[in-house]
Write a protein that binds this DNA or RNA. Structure first.
Length: 683
DNA sequence: CAGTGAGCGAGCTTCCGCTTGACTT
């Protein structure tokens, strides 16, 4: 008989551990949580002190059945789930679902033979305070989500949703859009001189011209928006007519740049978004495969910890490959600073420092790209700083002062491995009192820029900074707010709110401002800490929240009026002759017959805008409209789809082929050809 | 090179967080 069943969360982790532990052990995985609140009901009895009703979802039923079989083969069961709030909760739910009597609870901080053996020697009990903190978190999220969403169904439209995390994400995007709407560009001007040091190589002169920007008039610094228009700028140019440009002072400094810390889920998603334009969802599925194949450590983490062995092998790799002066000199440890970090795992790093991207050439191209990024970032974080020489020269001209900056790399350090955009900005060797050659003087018009819309990277960054969401939820949250059609991406992959996004956000802000506030999660986490430390009961945390919340909710329900989102039009229904009105659905506005439900006629507003004014050559009834495919590519199809499936990639023109009578299409700017593939007519 | 798209409204919808595959008719 085998001795023990060890349960962890991830099957990959189970396989790894099986290699360390002998045949006395069976290692299995729980695949995450095994019990949860029911999907179709609130599942929390607020009258009975928030008693949760836990059920085992269908998928977990199979897992539990398997685990029970394994339990029969062993003497004892050991729960080795992650050492954080959710991990402790999973252990407890396993205990309950498997009806375990006094199971052993162990935790390990790195997956090595010695760490696991050490952990096995010091089992503890399940920490019920931590479990209770998770219960409070779970119940609060359920109450918020399952109470606010129905309010939206009643107030706005069915199928909508609200939640502690998603509603904050939408709110950020809505607020940014309003800032942009309000924004008024302000004109300002800058003055730039192009100069050079007279050529005399022995004294460091050269033909190379360099720019210097105007920074002072007299002793007073010129602020960014101070020069308001061309007249003012021209006045300065006039003042500088025939001026002598003389080096007033030189400041030389050595500046250093540190490598970035190793990746967490959030920073990995941000970097892949910025460098490759990947959505977080894609980054995660590629990382999943790298993890399963043993190339990287776990990819859902907020920890910056690095195992001793990884630090040691990074040191060996760096000194061997690049030389001793590229290694930082000691193992560099990073401290996790993000709010609510739970530290159950390591940072995301390559499994082996010496497994270079080049050595993995066989794998899928996108996996290789992501692996390279992770590998470079990890190696770089144990390397020396990059060192730059920076020069700042103040140059006087009449009553004005210009400044020229130079920055040159002295030692590349970690940049040897983790490339970032850097261009040397060279200045000639300037000395105090040098008289410079004047090349030209320009005034340059600028305008202040509106704030940038969020992209996936900046949205994730902001959420994480405020402790909203977890490594496992950034990508799903971004999917949810798009699936609900609260927000979409523009061509630059930046988020903007839909009309529905504005409406839902405003309803939530007006009625439940506290919950959709970005600080709500941080406050909740504080309360949860109190529970985890045993100072507060979890039910009390729920009660303190639910009391006032239920009261507000009841009040809001009392005088809830469905927001009228319809609009009159002067159109007439082609089916029954009644008036057509504009309605608002989850997918935006559409035209509908005012006699609904007797008459179910609808038309798409989008289609009206994109109507080419060409009758469908196939069914002779519909009109040709421009639409977007699922991949976002424009095509031209019949608007009576799905009744008629006529569609073309090329834009049709309202002319027909003299040879075969098919419709002609605009192939490119100069050619019009026949849409019939077997016909070669073109003009 | 291949590749193209539905029901949105008057009902069964909805949360966050942990983890991967994907029963049958």
């Amino acid at each position: 008989m085998k001795k023990s069943l060890v349960i962890v969360e991830s099957p990959t982790k189970a396989r790894t551990i099986q290699k360390f532990l002998g045949s006395d052990f069976i290692i299995k995985s729980s695949f995450g949580h095994v019990r949860d609140l029911p999907r179709r009901e609130l599942g929390v009895d607020v009258e009975k002190n928030f008693l949760p009703k836990y059920v085992i979802p269908p998928k977990a039923k199979k897992v539990i059945a398997e685990l029970k079989k394994d339990m029969a083969k062993v003497e004892n069961t050991i729960l080795a789930t992650d050492e954080d709030r959710e991990g402790e909760s999973i252990a407890w739910h396993l205990q309950e679902a498997l009806k375990l009597k006094d199971p052993q609870r162990i935790v390990f901080h790195e997956i090595t033979e010695s760490a696991i053996n050490h952990a096995l020697k010091s089992p503890r009990k399940i920490d019920m305070n931590l479990v209770d903190a998770q219960q409070a978190r779970r119940v609060l999220d359920r109450i918020v989500g399952y109470k606010l969403s129905p309010f939206l169904w009643k107030k706005v439209a069915k199928g909508l949703s609200a939640g502690r995390v998603q509603s904050v994400a939408v709110k950020l995007i809505v607020e940014k859009e309003r800032e942009i709407e309000k924004f008024i560009a302000v004109e300002y001007w800058g003055v730039e001189a192009l100069l050079k040091k007279p050529a005399s190589p022995s004294q460091g002169g050269s033909d190379k011209e360099f720019p210097a920007s105007l920074i002072k008039k007299g002793d007073k610094a010129i602020e960014k928006l101070e020069i308001k228009n061309k007249v003012e700028a021209d006045k300065i140019l006039q003042d500088l007519n025939n001026a002598d440009y003389i080096v007033e002072s030189i400041e030389k400094k050595e500046t250093k740049r540190n490598p970035a810390p190793p990746f967490t889920t959030s920073t990995l998603q941000q970097a892949a978004s910025q460098r490759f334009g990947w959505p977080a969802k894609m980054t995660m599925s590629i990382a999943q495969r790298l993890y399963e194949e043993g190339n990287i450590t776990y990819h859902r983490t907020d920890s910056l910890n690095l195992s001793e062995t990884s630090l040691e092998s990074a040191k060996n790799f760096i000194t061997k490959e690049y030389g001793k002066n590229y290694w930082a000199g000691k193992a560099v440890k990073y401290i996790t600073k993000s709010k609510g970090a739970q530290e159950a795992h390591e940072a995301i790093r390559p499994a082996y420092a010496d497994r270079t991207p080049e050595s993995l050439k066989g794998i899928d191209a996108r996996q290789l790209k992501l692996y390279t990024l992770i590998w470079q970032r990890f190696i770089a974080c144990q390397m020396t700083q990059a060192i730059f020489d920076s020069v700042s020269a103040d140059i006087s001209a009449n009553d004005y002062t210009f400044r020229a900056n130079g920055l040159t790399m002295k030692f590349d350090g970690f940049l040897k491995v983790y490339p970032t955009k850097f261009e040397d900005k060279d200045l000639p060797d300037l000395e105090k009192n040098d008289k410079l050659d004047f090349v030209k003087l320009d005034s340059i018009q600028h305008f202040t820029e509106p704030p940038a819309r969020y992209n996936e990277a900046s949205l994730i960054k902001t959420l994480e900074k405020n402790g909203v969401g977890r490594p496992s939820t950034y990508a799903p949250t971004i999917s949810t707010i798009q699936d609900r059609n609260y927000v979409s991406k523009n061509e630059q992959k930046r988020f903007f709110p839909s009309e529905m996004g504005f409406i839902v956000n405003d309803v939530l802000v007006e009625n439940f401002s506290e919950i959709v506030d970005i600080g709500f999660t941080a406050k909740m986490e504080e309360e949860l800490d109190g529970v985890a430390e045993g100072k507060d009961k979890w039910e009390k945390v729920c009660k303190d929240f639910y009391g006032p919340f239920a009261k507000i909710l009841a009040e809001k329900y009392k005088d809830v009026v469905k927001t009228d989102l319809t609009q009159e039009t002067d159109k007439i229904c082609p089916k029954c002759g009644s008036k057509i009105i504009e309605r608002m659905g989850r997918f935006g506005r559409f035209y509908a017959c005012s006699r609904f439900p007797e008459c179910k006629h609808t038309e798409s507003i989008e289609d009206k805008k994109n109507d080419l004014g060409i009758k469908c050559p196939k069914c002779k009834e519909g009109d040709i409209v421009a639409r977007k495919s699922k991949r976002g590519k424009i095509f031209y199809g019949c608007n009576s789809f799905p009744k008629c499936d006529f569609a073309l990639w090329d834009k049709p023109v309202n002319e027909f082929c003299p040879k075969c009578d098919s419709i002609l299409v605009q192939k490119n700017k100069s050619t019009i050809k026949c849409s019939n593939k077997e016909c070669d007519y073109a003009k």
